Computed example of a mutant assay.
Amino acid sequence: MIFSILDILGLIAFAISGALAGIEKKLDFFGVFVIAMVTSIGGGTLRDLLIGNTPVFWLLNLQTFYIVTAATILSIIFRQYLSFLRTSLFLFDTIGIGIFTIIGIEKGLSINFSPIVCILLGTVTACFGGVARDILCNEIPVIFRKEIYATACLMGGFMFFGLKLLHVNDDVIYVGTAGTIILIRILAVRYNWSFPKIEIK
């Protein structure tokens, strides 16, 4: 039950993240909707293609379309309450990567992939939608900048399997993993944690 709820929450978080990015770029409704949709389904689409799970998930269930559409419309209607767009975008994007990492890991486990592959699959699921969003918005994808992003997903993945080894309840693992990723991302931005840039002297 909690896994289905997390899936829906992840879609909503990424849809809002994409919609806010489109609004910030002053796109029209169609443009905002496209960015929201790509952000929501991009990672899951790449994941399904990588593992040969076709047709991809959102083609088989219109629930994804309805959720993203509703989240986009609400983001536009209540945009005045999200006046600090950069902060709101960061928050919803962070929630999204925390949840989608778990979804990708579970997808890998369902077809008996090794833990390392599952963690990488979770990271792809979490990050690729944001990469597509940033490219469409003419931004350097955040995953390629100095901010801790994919690293938080990887650390959350190791947390996931660490708790599995301890035979912790699955619901606790889901919440603990997502919470770890979100906390790492927030702390990294708050305290400017980053990897060193590669520069030409």
Rank of each mutant, 00 (worst) to 15 (best):
residue 166 L to G: 00
residue 11 L to I: 08
residue 145 R to I: 14
residue 125 T to L: 07
residue 195 F to C: 03
residue 11 L to V: 03
residue 134 D to N: 07
residue 30 F to G: 11
residue 79 R to Q: 15
residue 149 Y to H: 12
residue 113 F to E: 03
residue 198 I to P: 10
residue 47 R to Q: 08
residue 145 R to S: 14
residue 195 F to G: 02
residue 157 G to N: 02
residue 80 Q to K: 15
residue 199 E to G: 09
residue 115 P to W: 01
residue 132 A to Q: 02
residue 187 L to Q: 03
residue 35 I to G: 04
residue 132 A to E: 05
residue 17 S to D: 03
residue 47 R to T: 01
residue 37 M to P: 02
residue 98 G to V: 01
residue 180 T to D: 01
residue 163 L to M: 13
residue 111 I to Y: 07
residue 160 F to N: 03
residue 106 E to P: 00
residue 170 D to S: 13
residue 71 A to L: 10
residue 134 D to I: 04
residue 21 A to W: 08
residue 56 V to I: 01
residue 95 I to C: 14
residue 10 G to S: 06
residue 169 N to L: 01
residue 166 L to V: 08
residue 22 G to W: 04
residue 19 A to S: 14
residue 87 T to S: 15
residue 123 T to K: 06
residue 141 P to I: 00
residue 70 A to H: 06
residue 48 D to N: 05
residue 36 A to T: 08
residue 198 I to F: 15
residue 107 K to R: 10
residue 44 G to L: 05
residue 51 I to Q: 01
residue 80 Q to Y: 14
residue 192 N to I: 00
residue 112 N to T: 15
residue 12 I to Q: 06
residue 161 F to C: 00
residue 174 Y to F: 12
residue 14 F to Q: 12
residue 118 C to A: 11
residue 100 F to E: 06
residue 96 G to W: 02
residue 179 G to M: 05
residue 13 A to Y: 09
residue 58 W to E: 10
residue 74 L to Q: 04
residue 174 Y to L: 07
residue 149 Y to N: 14
residue 84 F to C: 13
residue 25 K to Q: 07
residue 175 V to C: 10
residue 194 S to C: 14
residue 100 F to G: 07
residue 42 G to H: 05
residue 62 L to R: 10
residue 82 L to D: 05
residue 155 M to R: 00
residue 48 D to T: 06
residue 197 K to S: 14
residue 10 G to R: 01
residue 15 A to M: 03
residue 63 Q to V: 12
residue 81 Y to W: 15
